[in-house]
Computed example of a mutant assay.
Amino acid sequence: MTEHTARLDHVVLWVRDPAAAAVFYEQAVGLTPVRLAEFIAGEEPFPSVRVSEDCLLDLMPSAAAEHMKMLPGAADSAGHPVNHVCLALPRGDFDALRTRLEERAVPASDVTHGSFGARGDATRSFYFRDPDGNVVEARHYD
């Protein structure tokens, strides 16, 4: 990938409790929290979790919606659902995620095969919801 290639930098998810959401994404999904301690200390407005070296999920408190002023109507996006976010994982991480979700009794869809994505058809994929109802797809390619 070159510096002239567009990349997804981050996705902002509205959540009720950003600290709890960060713990879910760390413990159940296996992502690393970023700025969580600083958020808890009141030094940052929201924490994130790292998807990859150059991509984050920002966990924005839904109570902050009224302060969204970057565009007219931006505050109205709070609670407006994104269809889903997809995480592409190595095969072992995919299997480990499925196991961690089962251990925590997090409902997940059946595993499907061949769904299309950024790298073509996935070998396997499934969906689950985070504690705030955001839908996450997990997949792996071989």
Rank of each mutant, 00 (worst) to 15 (best):
P45A: 14
D54C: 08
E53L: 13
V23R: 15
A96H: 14
P107F: 04
D9T: 13
G42S: 05
G114L: 10
H84C: 07
G114R: 06
G120I: 01
F94S: 01
G79W: 10
L36C: 08
V85D: 02
P81H: 07
E43M: 14
P107R: 11
V29R: 01
A19S: 10
D121K: 14
A118L: 06
G73I: 06
G79C: 05
D93Q: 12
H84N: 14
D110W: 11
E26I: 02
R119D: 09
F24V: 03
Q27M: 12
A41V: 04
A88E: 06
L31H: 00
A63H: 05
V23Y: 13
P72D: 10
R35V: 02
E102F: 14
L57P: 00
A41Y: 01
A28Q: 01
A37T: 05
S77F: 04
A22R: 03
L56W: 01
H4W: 14
T112S: 14
C55N: 12
G30W: 00
H10M: 03
L8I: 06
A28T: 05
R100E: 07
H84A: 02
G120C: 09
H10C: 02
A22M: 06
E103D: 09
A64I: 11
H10Q: 08
E66S: 14
A21L: 09
A21G: 05
H4V: 10
A108F: 04
Q27G: 14
P72M: 03
L89D: 00
A78M: 00
S48F: 13
E44D: 13
A65R: 06
A20V: 05
A20T: 02
D17T: 03
R91K: 09
L89H: 04
H80R: 15
V111F: 02
E44N: 13
A96D: 12
V49M: 03
V85F: 05
A74C: 09
P47Q: 07
V23F: 10
D54R: 13
P61G: 12
S62F: 13
L89N: 02
V23M: 11
V82W: 06
D93N: 13
A63C: 04
A20S: 10
K69H: 15
H4E: 06
L8Q: 11
Q27I: 07
S115D: 12
A65W: 00
V29L: 01
L57T: 02
W14M: 03
V49D: 02
G79F: 03
A28P: 04
L71R: 06
G79H: 00
A22T: 11
A41P: 09
D17M: 02
P61D: 04
E66W: 05
D95T: 13
G73V: 08
D58L: 12
G42P: 03
A65L: 07
A28D: 04
A41N: 06
A19Q: 10
V11I: 14
L59H: 04
P18H: 13
P72R: 06
P61R: 02
R98Y: 06
W14F: 01
T5G: 07
H84S: 15
H80C: 07
V15C: 06
R16Y: 10
G30L: 04
A122H: 03
P81T: 09
D76V: 09
R119F: 11
L87C: 07
L71T: 12
L59E: 07
V111E: 00
L13G: 01
D121A: 15
T99A: 15
E38L: 11
S52T: 12
R119Y: 06
H4R: 12
S115T: 10
P61T: 10
G114N: 07
T112I: 08
G73F: 07
